[in-house]
Design a protein around this nucleic acid. Sequence first.
DNA 1: CGTCCCATAGTTGCATGCTACTGTTGCATG
DNA 2: CATGCAACAGTAGCATGCAACTATGGGACG
Lengths: 219, 219
Amino acid sequence: MTKSDRLAIAIRDAIRRGELISGVLYSAQELGERFGASRTPVREALLRLADANLVKIERNRGARVLGSDIHDVVEVGALRLLLEPAATRVATLRMGEADHARLHAALDRMRELSDEPDAMFAADRDFHDIILRASGNRRLADMVAGLRETVVLHGRTTVPAARAVAQVIAEHTAIATAIVAGDQAAAERAMRHHLATTTGLLIADDPSAGHDLAAWLEP
Amino acid sequence: MTKSDRLAIAIRDAIRRGELISGVLYSAQELGERFGASRTPVREALLRLADANLVKIERNRGARVLGSDIHDVVEVGALRLLLEPAATRVATLRMGEADHARLHAALDRMRELSDEPDAMFAADRDFHDIILRASGNRRLADMVAGLRETVVLHGRTTVPAARAVAQVIAEHTAIATAIVAGDQAAAERAMRHHLATTTGLLIADDPSAGHDLAAWLEP
DNA sequence: CGTCCCATAGTTGCATGCTACTGTTGCATG
DNA sequence: CATGCAACAGTAGCATGCAACTATGGGACG
C-alpha cells in the first residue's frame, strides 16, 4: 500500500475523530508534518478526498474540511433507502452459510461491544457491508460505503445518543433473521425500516428535512 | 481549472474515444508527453481515474486502462434503474419552466444532431443530468454521471448501432412530456422503461446477464 | 539444448525547488 | 479618521531529481 493511500485513510479518520475540524483550512505542509509525509502524497490524498466531498481544495489557500449539514443527511438517507433494501433483497438469494455466519459474527460483536462506540460503529459497518457485497454489485457496495463515510462526521455523535443500542441491535437482528430464512420481501422490509428509522432520528429536529426525505420514499 | 483536472478529463475522453486502449499499460511519462504535462499532474489524474475504476494503477508498471465487461453493464444498469426513476419522480415536482426549457433544448439537440454520435451522446448525457440535478440530490446526480462514464467504453459502440435513433428520441420525449405535465408516476415509469430498454439491448446477447439484472428489478 | 541468474531498462512513488497567485497587514495619503 | 495601496508571507500547482522496485532478456552453466 502506498503512502498516498495511507494518508487518504489517515486524514479521513482524523476528520471522523474530529482531530481535523470542519470549516478549518489546512495546508499540505501542515498535514504532511502531522502525518509524516511530504507535500506530494498529502496533495494526492487531498485530491481524492475532495472527489469524495470530504474536503474542498481552495487554490493557493489550502484544503478546507467540509462538515455535513442536514441536507447532506437527507441526501445520503435517500440514497441508502433507494439502494440498500433492493441490495438486501438480492443478497438474500445469494448468501450461503458462510455469509450467514459472518453476518452473525458481526451481530455478536455488536452485542458484546455495545458499550464501545468505535467498535459498535465498525460492527455496524461490517454488517451492512457483508450484505451489500453479497448482492454481487460491487459498485453499489462501494457507493454505500462512501456515503457512510461522508456522513459519519455528523452521524457519529448523533446516532448512539439518540437511540437505544438495544433497538439498533434488534433491527439488525430482524434483518439477519429474514435473510437467513431466505425471505426476500421480509429482509427488504426490515432493511428499509432500519434505514428509515435511523435517518428519521438524524433529522428528527428538522421538519422540512423530513418533508424532503419523504419525497423520495413514496413508491 | 488546474492541469490535473484537465488531464483527468482528457484521459477519460481519450479512453472513451478509444485512443487509449483497454488492457494496455501506459506510463505516466508517456501520457505526460501525449497531453503536454509532467508526470505529477498525470499521476494525480490517474489516481482519481483509478478511484473511478477507469484505470488500475500497477505499482512500478504503469496504469492499465480497464474495459467494462458484461457484468459491469449489469451493475451499472441495476444501479441506474434503482436511482434514476426515483430521481425523476422527485424532479418532476421540483422542475420549473426554466428546467423544462433546458430539457427541451437538450431534446432538440438530440433531434438535430442525431447523425453525430458524439453530439448525440452529449445531448443524452445533458438530458439525464438536467433531471438528476433537478431532483436536488447532488450526490445522486454525481454518482449516476460517474456510472455513465464507466460504461461508455462498452456502450458507445453498442448503443447507436443496436437501436434506432428515433426510438431513443421517442423514449426521451415521453419522459419530457410526463415531466412537463407534472405527472410523477408517468415520468417515473417512462424513465424506468427507457433505462430497462437501453440496458436490455446492451446485454441482449447474454441470457445469464439478463437473469442477473432481473433479480434487481422485481419490486 | 534447456535452465538459472544477473544485469539492465523502465517504472512508480516520494521529496523538493520554483513560480505564480492570494489574502492580509501596515503604511501612506486624502 | 477613513481609504487606497503596496509589500509581504504563505500557499498550491507543476517540474524534476532520486531511490526502490519489477519484468525481462541475454549469457553462463549444467
